[in-house]
Amino acid sequence: MFFERVAIFTLQLRAKLAAFFKFMLQEIDSQFVHLIITCIISFATLLLLYVWILHFPLWIQLGYIVSYIMIVIICATIYYFHITNKKVRINPEGMEVVTSENHESRKFQQLNLKAIPLTPLQKKHIFDSFSTNYFSGNYKSFQCLILLKPLSEKDRLEWKDASPKRPKQVNRQTLLEFLSQLIIGFENLENHQMMEFVKYYFVLQNSEGASQHLSSKNISDWRMNKASYLKEISRIFQQHL
């Protein structure tokens, strides 16, 4: 019975430590996390001095040195992720290391893209017009899209316009038309570049909350599409230019 309780406690402790470590890696850009790391290293160093100054038994001193080294390695790993602009993303298949938003945004800035010239008032009118029926998100995120600035995953815009033929599906062709009207040079991108751009700034979910993605077929259909619902996107832009 005693050993079973010890085993359960060990597994619970391991799960909590693993969850905390994932949190630290995911939120590496947070000042709160940096403060925690600093406090951990400071406390661990003070405890190391305390153990050696008071002449604890040798096995305790050596055991704590091992623990201290592990703590330093974990903290150094987190700082490495911060310095190299990397982060850990958790998906159904496990954890993977990906480049940060700053790197992705710089890549888009190198594609010779720029937003159409808009006054602050025009930007606000266009945001208000499209956020009513086409997407949801805050104005700050919309400005990041226009300026090709970094945008965190949690602040991405959600395209919600429904497909005229499949009401439960997101209308990805209207999204492409919207970006083509807003971003000069967007229509000249290759298919995979368009898909990366959309994935970086937008979240695509159908009415049931299932995630969706842009495909090469969506892009090909959009280039050939002359439907009136795409012309409506252009009309809204022209209304405020």
Rank of each mutant, 00 (worst) to 15 (best):
L145M: 00
V33E: 14
H213N: 15
N171Y: 02
I69G: 13
L118A: 09
E158A: 02
R235Q: 12
L230D: 07
K86G: 12
R235M: 09
L179E: 05
N191L: 01
L62K: 15
L11N: 05
Q122Y: 02
L11E: 10
I40E: 12
E4F: 07
I69R: 14
M1Q: 15
D128S: 04
I236D: 08
H34I: 02
I53N: 11
E158T: 02
V203G: 03
W52S: 07
I183Q: 10
I78T: 06
E232S: 08
F197N: 11
Y134D: 10
L182T: 03
K226R: 14
W52Q: 09
L13A: 15
A115F: 02
G137H: 06
G185Y: 04
Q31E: 15
N191K: 14
I90T: 10
I28T: 09
C75Y: 02
L58H: 12
F2D: 15
L113G: 08
I73G: 12
D221M: 01
N218S: 11
Y201I: 01
F56S: 10
L111M: 12
S152I: 07
Y80C: 08
K22S: 14
A15I: 00
N102R: 14
E27N: 15
F9A: 15
I184T: 13
S136K: 13
E190A: 04
I83R: 11
V88T: 11
S216C: 06
K231C: 02
D161A: 15
F9P: 01
V72N: 06
T38L: 15
Y80K: 07
M224L: 12
E153C: 02
I28A: 03
Q239E: 14
I74D: 12
K140W: 04
L58F: 12
I126P: 03
Q205D: 06
N218F: 05
Q173S: 02
Q181A: 09
C75N: 13
H82K: 14
L121H: 05
T77Y: 11
A19W: 05
I8Q: 15
L11I: 03
L11W: 10
R14V: 01
I71E: 11
V88K: 10
Q173F: 00
K107R: 03
T38V: 06
N112M: 02
N225Q: 08
K16I: 08
M95N: 12
I36W: 11
V198M: 03
F135S: 01
V6P: 04
L46N: 13
G185R: 08
V88R: 07
K154W: 11
E101L: 01
K199Y: 02
E93W: 13
E190T: 05
G209E: 11
A19F: 05
P167K: 05
L13Q: 14
E196Y: 00
S215E: 11
G94K: 09
E190Y: 13
K199L: 09
L118N: 02
E104A: 00
T10Y: 12
V98I: 13
G63D: 08
N112F: 05
E153F: 07
Y79K: 08
L148T: 00
S228E: 15
T99L: 10
K217Y: 14
K231R: 07
I183Y: 07
D155S: 13
I90A: 03
L48T: 09
P164H: 03
E96L: 13
L151D: 04
I53C: 06
K123H: 05
I236K: 10
N225V: 01
M195A: 04
L46T: 09
E158Y: 00
K168C: 07
K165Q: 09
S207H: 05
Q205L: 06
L214I: 06
W52V: 06
I90G: 00
